[in-house]
Design a protein around this nucleic acid. Structure first.
Lengths: 329, 329
DNA sequence: TTGAAAGCGCTAACAC
DNA sequence: GTGTTAGCGCTTTCAA
């Protein structure tokens, strides 16, 4: 690979001059600059980022840690992040923590060793240590989807309270007497806020809620399926069910279909997330839409601000969800 | 951050000794090694990968370029790759080329500048230039999902011929007279091979195929939807339709449902890929399953072999697909 | 406007 | 078994 030295030798100038010309420093004559740029172009000069990073003590790499990149919700956020970062000259390293705090700590350490410019993080359930580590080493970071400390962290999240509020309000507008809620890990801010929104909406609808209506710790289809069976053991339709994610909703729907229970006539079901492919299949799932791509873009933009200026106007961004009524409600 | 020098100073040994102890060189006494390891552990020593990479002229970063990380098929492959690479001490940088050869060339150049250890690449339709660039700079790489040159490239792909063969054979076993094929970009090896498999199966079933049965260049739901409408303009059910992907199949199914055409009684439809969530919704899509996670794992393993030994036993891996019969056929 | 020189943290060849 | 030293490619200060 051609290096600065090669260009310098070929053109009989110093390495310094070549470096300055290539980096747009003002103190190089136009003629020289042109000559150097042309040569570099012709011989496909690509700056050695490792050497540059080493010298400058910072890379243009951003680490992104979340539970699982193959979850369609996460995948979409990553897409937004990657697009934005790459358009600003940053690189995206992905890491899956599988909701494991121990693993997450290791990953953060590794990113530290890589001298990353910044980190985007969905902290594993309740893990505040990784943030502390990042702060200690003064690495800019933005939390994604959840926060640990609402007032102090820097984050981009969904308005979870509102998401669950909208869903619950919609479901409680029918004449069913019960609205169940299949919630996610209870230690996570998004679950807590959605629980709040759920309760707020029920109160507003004058429905007296029973704590048994909330089934926490649902993570995937299977959990949704099992939770639904559990509900059916003790409860007769009609009723309705709000789910923390579309995946959980699909699991719940499977359980209902197995029992030949009609949706939405007997049981109304809603998801959250608006996974794209689900809008094209039956039953067309009623859900709460989240701007996943834009959320990713916002995360990346916020992080870049932080990297560049070490501060920014708005450190806490809350994205608005949107009710999408289809056929399961 | 604590450096080798800090440890060396604190323990009154040389930097070299510390480096050797930490890297497991044999010529360090057990006592010294223990002392150094303990100190490093206690003060959270994390090796500066940038310095190390710079010195060694190679990083532990692998670049992965494909069309779109948020496509569930790709996302799943990425998951397998990330898991494998990280377990072997490598980092995964993702990049989306959006099937754009120009963009892809830029991305490859950037990876070159990053001194990546290797590259995993799904080359944008027909683009052989990026491989040439990688070869020129002697960067190990593995093609994913497609190849440019069947005999010479290093790759991990699906047995596309067989995938389409299995699907077509299944569909042609019904008494419909026509089997349409909604295919992907025709310049891509997987499309070409599937076309072959499709034709082989038809021949075997003694069905005389008409070229108009193949609709190429379908990329997503919308294309599947449009293609299906086009087919319906000129053809009366019953017939059957093989699709290059589950997404395309979902689009086609939407078009059929809009026209109130029964599936599979009037028109049988199959996808390919076996996107997980589709097995839980209606209509439960008949498809050809591909081991996406294992494909990702294989890619990563193959690349690591290449990085380490610059060679390996099997440079061309073909994964077996599997017929999954559900309700749309 | 240009260039010389130092140095980022680490590894490895070599000397002791 | 341990230490000395050179140098990876680049940016940046300072001098010319």
């Amino acid at each position: 690979m051609v290096r600065l030295k090669d260009i310098a030798d070929a053109l009989n100038v110093s390495i310094t001059t070549v470096s300055k010309a290539l980096n747009g420093h003002p103190d190089i004559s136009e003629a020289r600059r042109k000559e150097i740029l042309e040569y570099a172009e012709r011989f496909n000069y690509v700056p050695n980022q490792v050497a540059r990073s080493f010298r400058q003590q910072r890379t243009r790499i951003v680490g992104i840690i979340l539970s699982d990149n193959s979850n369609p919700y996460n995948a979409r956020i990553i897409r937004g992040i990657e697009e934005t970062l790459s358009s600003k000259g940053y690189y995206t390293i992905i890491m899956n923590n599988q909701e494991d705090p121990e693993k997450e700590m290791k990953l953060v350490s590794e990113l530290l060793g890589l001298n990353v410019a910044g980190v985007l993080l969905t902290p594993a359930a309740g893990n505040r240590k990784s943030c502390e580590l990042l702060r200690k080493f003064n690495i800019p970071y933005v939390l994604v989807n959840r926060y640990i400390n609402e007032k102090e962290d820097t984050y981009v999240v969904v308005d979870d309270r509102k998401a669950a509020y909208l869903g619950t309000k919609h479901l409680s507008s029918f004449c069913y007497d019960k609205v169940f809620f299949l919630n996610f890990l209870s230690s996570v801010s998004s679950s807590k806020n959605r629980l709040k929104g759920y309760k707020d909406a029920l109160k507003e609808a004058n429905i007296e809620m029973d704590e048994s209506w909330v089934i926490p710790e649902c993570k995937n289809q299977l959990d949704g399926y099992k939770a639904m069976l559990k509900i059916l053991e003790k409860n007769k339709p009609p009723f309705s069910v709000l789910c923390y994610s579309d995946y959980i909703a699909i699991g719940a729907i499977c359980a209902l279909q197995e029992r030949l229970i009609r949706i939405p006539e007997d049981v109304a079901v809603m998801g959250t997330d608006d996974i794209d492919i689900l809008s094209f299949v039956k039953p067309r799932l009623t859900t709460v839409g989240v701007p996943k791509l834009r959320l990713g873009i916002k995360c990346a933009e916020l992080l870049i601000d932080l990297i560049k200026k070490k501060e920014c106007k708005e450190r806490r961004i809350v994205m608005k969800p949107e009710l999408i009524i289809r056929e399961t409600s």
